[in-house]
């Protein structure tokens, strides 16, 4: 037993806390629990929903709304990591996550996620309106209960339905400004919803060994690479016209329309390359999944470009330039 332990609070400290240097690694772990890379897209799509909504929101309240969307998404990601720490430890991509690696105690991680989720919803309600707070709470519950707990380990359709969780931010941003739902945020929801499967399945085509080891029924694991390539093509065929819908319905102008056509055609081209890539009889790539990797990268550009173009189009029309 050390001297410190034996003599309790009266013991002179062997190391003064005042002179201890600071270890930031634990803070980095707490931040990593919020899945900051996923947060980037969530923040961006939420911001677009907020910017293209009719009406006005005080810039401070708008910034707080975006912060709440980010923290809410991070909290959901944290609870997801708590629930999945067993399979995370089996996958190369996720084995170093704080709870999977044992650097942060599971109960502390869960408490952190739940507290942040509650805080983000309450702050959203106080700063904007309770409808937006309700949508934020719904998105957190959807991601945790529907995707993480119910679907992920049970069905290869996990990404399809679970993708809805990532599609909520434009709705939340919009409702934070207007207080109610409308057609355009629903279309944005549909776009992100249809975009998620080809985006994730492109990734899972070359990362399926990890999922296989962890027993997660991703489409390439359950139905094979050939079927996954076919499904990527099918969802991209649905996604391309969905992207054009705001212009077709008169909710966005021709600037957005040009971007939507170009980006939709680009994604279709990449999906076609994934489908036609040199492969063996089971659909496994003979060229190290080059087409799937390119499609994954393009999918990120596609969604960011589409949302950015919608904001640009909105700005050009509201300022009277177009």
């Amino acid at each position: 037993m050390s001297d410190l332990m034996r003599r309790g609070a009266t013991a002179p400290l062997a190391v003064s806390p005042l002179h201890a240097t600071t270890d930031w690694s634990e803070l980095r772990d707490w931040f990593a629990l919020l899945k900051p890379r996923v947060m980037t897209l969530v923040v961006f799509s939420g911001l677009v929903g907020l910017l293209v909504a009719p009406g006005h929101i005080h810039p401070v309240l708008g910034a707080v709304a975006i912060l709440c969307i980010a923290v809410g998404a991070g909290a959901a990601g944290c609870i997801n990591m708590w629930y999945e720490r067993d399979i995370d430890a089996l996958m190369r991509r996720t084995a170093r996550r704080p709870m999977a690696a044992g650097r942060i105690a599971p109960e502390a991680g869960l408490a952190y996620g739940v507290i942040l989720a509650g805080l983000s919803v309450a702050l959203m309600g106080l700063a904007t309106n309770w409808a937006a707070a309700g949508w934020l709470l719904g998105s957190i519950l959807f991601y945790v209960l529907i995707y993480t707990v119910w679907l992920k380990r049970r069905t290869p359709q996990n990404i399809v339905i679970g993708g809805a969780a990532g599609a909520f931010p434009p709705i939340i941003g919009w409702v934070a400004v207007t207080g109610h739902l409308d057609v355009l945020p629903l279309i944005l929801f549909a776009i992100v919803f249809a975009w998620t499967p080809p985006h994730f399945w492109s990734l899972s085509l070359w990362a399926h060994e990890d999922y296989e080891r962890a027993g997660v029924p991703m489409l390439p694991v359950v139905a094979g690479a050939r079927e996954t390539r076919r499904q990527i093509m099918l969802y991209t065929v649905v996604l391309a016209p969905l992207g054009l819908l705001p212009t077709l319905l008169g909710l966005a102008g021709w600037v957005y329309g040009v971007y939507a056509i170009s980006l939709g055609a680009g994604f279709l081209f990449h999906a076609w390359r994934v489908l036609r890539e040199p492969q063996d009889a089971t659909g496994v790539s003979l060229v190290r999944d080059a087409a799937a990797r390119a499609a994954f990268r393009f999918s990120l550009l596609h969604l960011a470009g589409l949302l950015g173009a919608l904001t640009l189009d909105h700005w050009l029309r509201t300022t009277g330039i177009l």
Binding site: V15, P17, T22, D23, S25
Partner: peptide, 16 residues
């Protein structure tokens, strides 16, 4: 028990 190294580590982490 905590060794001296563990105590140092403990205070560094707590400070952060």
């Amino acid at each position: 028990s905590m060794s001296k190294e563990e105590e140092v580590e403990f205070y560094r982490r707590r400070r952060g």
